[in-house]
Nucleic acid binder design. Sequence first.
DNA 1: TCATACTTTAGATATATATCTAATTATATA
DNA 2: TATATAATTAGATATATATCTAAAGTATGA
Lengths: 198, 198
Amino acid sequence: MQLDKIVAYHKALSDPTRLRILLLLSRGEVHGHALAEKLNLSQPTVTHHAAKLREAALIQERRDKNTVYFKLNPEFIQSGSEASLKFIFAKGVEEMEEESPEHSLKESVLRNFFAKDGRLRQIPAQYKKKLIALQYMVEKLEPGVVYSEKEINEFIKPFHDDYATIRREFIMHQFMYRENDKYELNPPELWTHWENVK
Amino acid sequence: MQLDKIVAYHKALSDPTRLRILLLLSRGEVHGHALAEKLNLSQPTVTHHAAKLREAALIQERRDKNTVYFKLNPEFIQSGSEASLKFIFAKGVEEMEEESPEHSLKESVLRNFFAKDGRLRQIPAQYKKKLIALQYMVEKLEPGVVYSEKEINEFIKPFHDDYATIRREFIMHQFMYRENDKYELNPPELWTHWENVK
DNA sequence: TCATACTTTAGATATATATCTAATTATATA
DNA sequence: TATATAATTAGATATATATCTAAAGTATGA
């Protein structure tokens, strides 16, 4: 289930009138006219809400003569709820682990921005390239180790004199995590990759 | 959990940007600036959405120096979903079974609108009273029995000559259910009671 | 104490939507 | 065929909201 569907599902349920309609339907079929009466609304308003609920597959309809009867589609109400939980909690990982076939760019950045002695000639101005350079440096840090600010500065200095800026960029792009002046590497899933950036 | 809370929960989840934020947070803390970058949005926009998510208790915040870190509140995401299913499917019954201490009105209607021989003198014009009279008659039908239209007419005639109108009112107020010209009593939970009508 | 960086607030704008009335369509019945 | 009932569509209005820019607030650090 993709984003749009989940949005539509919650939109359908994010109106008090529609929730009251579902509640009334929970005990069995009700027709449009009766809904309008019970809710003290005009019939066009009921039609309007019924359309929204139908689009989200939350109700079904049947016609008998002039009258349209509505009833719940309980499966979809349930599965929509499950889908959105899955979306938030689980699906995230694969979703964002897209392809990154840009090896050539990476190589070119490393070759052009880093000198043979390993120093960073200058901080790339272009966003993608900056991320690549930052990641290259940060990968030399030890995961799980808690660094002081001073240690981070000392780590960066051999690459570039402006350690303050680079240290800030580490945080900004989520390569690292800071709490009470202690610095620690984030897991790579949290790093900003330019592929992630819409 | 009452209607308002459930509406707020689904409203919070009914925006694609907010879902993407939750997805980004599903892997750990992220701070505002990083969210703005990853989503290609301005920081005020992130603040705006964060406020909505916080109001719905879906995220929590922590501040370190100038930076505000957001993280999921997974319990609430889960429990909101459960609550709304409960609301639609279960809670309905008690919700609507309010008090109905209007026995005196019922007695007065039965006394004044029905003659000693059981005939309905006239169809009450006042909504509440009409429902009482209709219910009184309909309760003499057998639950579970499928009636033809003709049988329903014959049933009504001893009460009142205008059986067509009364038959329609039976359907209209959900005392009965019609499908392919077959009539059947609805369960009383579906009947329109004037207490239900806002 | 001044400048910087992150966040929030204020205000503007454009879009979405919940509701209504009036008109139209669809179906059934006399 | 004309009438009645239920539903839908069209159009109007008022409110809500997602987003932006600009300004103000807040905490840090030199």
